[in-house]
Design a protein around this nucleic acid. Structure first.
Lengths: 206, 206
DNA sequence: CCTACCGATCGGTAGG
DNA sequence: CCTACCGATCGGTAGG
């Protein structure tokens, strides 16, 4: 949404959430002070409390505003392919590309898991699950027969795991590995995943 | 090592690290105070500084003492199997079982990634990589031919990803999913992984 | 290893 | 939305 369409109050609120997000993913929740957030948002400390009740309230809003669903859903909906394999490959590529622009997106979840014991993450996921299942079912369509007999929930979980593990191992392997081991990393991980869920991944055998 | 073999100073140091670990994985680094650590370790605040130079120094020692390698290495070395498939299955089972006792082991890594920008994690991993590669090569042995042609680093990365993603999705899926979707979760994830890396996973096809 | 203390900073609020 | 302030707590240290 364009900034011009926001009232002054809405614009300030947006600025606060954006500032808080940048600080939370780099310093954690307790490592970020309300004064830092206020300064980055361009207002005085007291002004924060015209928009939010407490620091925790700020975090909740940041968490809802910046969780990766925003990038993930459009990527899944835009994906195309004549076979399940092509479709899954295109979906993962789009998701990775969309999330690549925001490389620290997992940090927000990490902060939530540690400092809030995952309560927001679990609640959010539970509320989104029906929609996720629906999208996955529609996306797979009849092509489901090309897949090995794996429960839908396990497919979803393995798919999440694929994306998670790519970004997580990217963080750790980044410096230690020679470049040639990293460039095609996502292609290899996708290959392994597809080979793992497809009945006959012909293209991969070549 | 038995507690009796520790001098009083060594015992206190161990108590401090253990206390700090429990607090860091639940509250993060900045969310934990030196006073909390001292209280939990049973000494006064000032006493901490006879053993550690600073709070960051405490964290570094905790990180080195409690990273998952301690559980992972014995699990890999103890694994047995007549085929690569049996071997991989046994390895993963042992690793998961060993780490299950310490369900928040990933939190320490999350804290490090967010609040220290992964510097310790990357350094640790880089220093362990040669040993990891050696263990993996010895473990796979000649059975390497049973695997699809995937670079060794990618096998390691996918294997890490399997374990990471299991624990990470367990956190989020836990509440939202009916029990029947979770009980065999690790078996399904291992199946997908094995099917993804093996040339002919005969047992799985049945 | 403890007591007592340092300056700095914390989340939050009153009042305008 | 800001200024000025609250009590509480922070990491760390001096001195014993």
């Amino acid at each position: 949404m364009p900034e011009e369409s926001l009232s002054r109050g809405e614009q300030t609120r947006t600025d606060i959430i954006q500032a808080a997000h940048e600080l939370f993913i780099r310093q954690g929740y307790h490592g970020t002070s309300m004064r830092q957030i206020a300064k980055k948002a361009g207002i005085a400390l007291g002004g924060l409390y015209n928009h939010f009740d407490s620091k925790e309230d700020v975090f909740k809003e940041v968490f809802l505003e910046y969780h990766p669903y925003r990038e993930v859903l459009p990527a899944v909906l835009a994906a195309r392919g004549n076979t399940i394999e092509e479709l899954l490959r295109d979906t993962v590529s789009r998701m990775i590309a969309a999330l690549q622009d925001r490389p620290k997106f997992m940090n927000l979840m990490f902060v939530e898991v540690v400092e809030f014991d995952s309560i927001h993450a679990r609640e959010l996921f539970a509320s989104m699950l029906p929609q996720i299942v629906g999208v996955v079912q529609r996306t797979l369509g009849e092509g489901r027969e090309e897949l090995r007999p794996i429960p839908l929930m396990m497919l979803i979980r393995a798919f999440f795991g694929l994306v998670f593990s790519y970004f997580l191992t990217e963080i750790i392997f980044a410096e230690a590995s020679p470049p040639e081991f990293r460039e095609d990393a996502i292609d290899y991980l996708i290959d392994i995943f597809l080979h793992g869920v497809l009945k006959e991944p012909e293209i991969l055998e070549g």
